[in-house]
């Protein structure tokens, strides 16, 4: 890693994957977004390689990594976070996690915003700035407060058109928003622990209790068994 080197941003929580390179002060240099659907795995690393090549940045020159942790599509988040972990480990990069929902709300502008994202084929995840995301079952509308505006991402046809349009605008600003939040934390040395970093967890299938991944896992074969 190069102290003060460019920052790489990865977010695969939505059906439109986002990668970006930014300067240490948080200003974007280049942003790429593509329709990943639910197949982020084939394209993410080749796209990162191409982005660095286009910008003339050697992978060893990177200075930090910002990863969006959702909530969002399981498949995308696994691909994005596994890739980010591999890169951070190999290149010894400091890593910062930013909740994709927080970044989208930030990108959507101020005011009393309610973000809706899909959770499976019928439920939605509802997020407000500074509050934990919640699952809303089936076709139920989220509880709205007076003055609330809806922002819907990945809900074309399942949310009001104005909300879907607001969602598209917010998604357009996702990379810049992740970069802003991540760069500030990297600059302050407020980085996350690479080992324990996992996706935001609100979209477990119905009926499955939330398992704590630290419990019930046994490590064997090394010289020390924690």
């Amino acid at each position: 890693m190069t102290a003060g080197g460019p920052i790489l941003v990865i977010d695969t929580a939505t059906t439109h994957a986002v990668i970006a390179l930014g300067d240490p002060d948080g200003s974007p240099r280049a942003v790429r977004s593509w329709v990943a659907g639910y197949r982020h795995g084939e394209e993410l690393l080749p796209r990162i390689e191409a982005l660095l090549a286009d910008e003339g940045v050697a992978r060893t020159a990177l200075g930090g990594l910002v990863v969006g942790t959702g909530p969002g599509a399981f498949t995308g988040l696994r691909v994005g976070i596994a890739t980010a972990k591999g890169l951070a480990h190999a290149l010894r990069l400091p890593i910062v996690r930013v909740a994709t929902a927080e970044a989208l709300l930030d990108a959507a502008g101020g005011g009393s915003l309610v973000l809706m994202q899909p959770a499976g084929s019928s439920d939605t995840v509802v997020s407000r700035a500074g509050e934990p995301s919640k699952i809303v079952a089936g076709g139920d509308a989220p509880d709205l407060r007076p003055g609330d505006a809806l922002v819907a991402v990945d809900l074309d046809g399942r949310a009001p058109i104005a909300a879907v349009e607001a969602g598209a605008r917010a998604h357009g600003g996702l990379a810049a928003s992740l970069l802003r939040a991540g760069a500030a934390r990297l600059a302050a040395g407020d980085v996350d622990d690479l080992a324990t970093l996992v996706p935001e967890y609100v979209t477990l299938p119905r009926g499955v209790r939330v398992a704590v991944p630290d419990a019930g896992v046994e490590l064997t074969g090394g010289r020390t068994v924690p």
Binding site: H89, A195, L197, A211, P213
Partner: peptide
């Protein structure tokens, strides 16, 4: 879903240990 999350949680410590 629980299995995939546990893989993400443990893959770096397992690599370091190996």
């Amino acid at each position: 879903e629980v299995a995939a999350r546990a893989h993400l949680r443990w893959i770096v410590p397992v690599l370091d240990e190996a």
